[in-house]
């Protein structure tokens, strides 16, 4: 699956939290990031491959079955052409109308930004959306996400741990649980 947005939204953090959360649940994981030279507003994609068995995934992920979208910019090139028909797209509600090429996919808009603002931390929108995706798919439990987030946040950003945890729990709670349960595909 692909997590996509623009530089500064915490896309790579979302990828890392998901990967560590999945590892904690004894799943096999590959995480690769595609982003330019540390530029705010630039294209940033995290490709996360998760499986129940040892992965055969390539480190350049050319195809996927799910996307978690934080911004409409760049996705026409970086994500949409790589999605198989019938992919699950969980997108921040405010950008859904701007997204290209949604035909044939299962799109679930989620008001992550609104929830993040309600709990008083707009910066945590990405984590709200990530937790919602995990609730919708049943991929990783919220407790594993919280543990993973604590591993990722560096010591000099400890003050954000509490707000991040709140964001993960709020997103997980508000999402339609198992609306699109995950199934691992077996590649030949």
């Amino acid at each position: 699956m692909f997590i996509s947005g623009i530089g500064g939204q915490g896309i790579q953090l979302m990828g890392k939290v998901l990967a560590l959360g999945a590892i904690a649940e004894n799943l096999f994981v590959q995480l690769t990031g595609e982003y330019g030279g540390a530029m705010r507003g630039g294209s940033t994609v995290a490709a996360v491959v998760i499986g129940a068995e040892r992965l055969r995934a390539l480190p350049v992920v050319s195809e996927g079955g799910a996307a978690l979208l934080m911004h409409d910019k760049f996705v026409d090139e970086s994500v949409m052409p790589k999605l198989r028909p019938g992919s699950l797209i969980v997108a921040e509600s405010s950008i859904v109308d701007l997204l290209p090429d949604l035909d044939g996919h299962h799109v679930i808009p989620f008001p992550a930004k609104t929830i993040a603002l309600e709990i008083g931390n707009a910066q945590s929108t990405g984590l709200v959306l990530l937790a919602a995706y995990c609730a919708i798919t049943g991929l990783v439990d919220v407790e594993s996400l919280v543990t993973a987030m604590k591993q990722v946040v560096p010591s000099y950003r400890r003050q954000h741990v509490e707000a991040n945890e709140k964001a993960l729990r709020a997103g997980f709670e508000a999402a339609p649980r198992l609306a699109a349960p995950v199934s691992f595909e077996v590649v030949a």
Binding site: A19, F28, V29, L31, T32, G33
Partner: peptide, 9 residues
């Protein structure tokens, strides 16, 4: 680069 930077379990 891909071996140096790809993260896996």
């Amino acid at each position: 680069n891909l071996i140096a930077r790809t993260q896996v379990g």
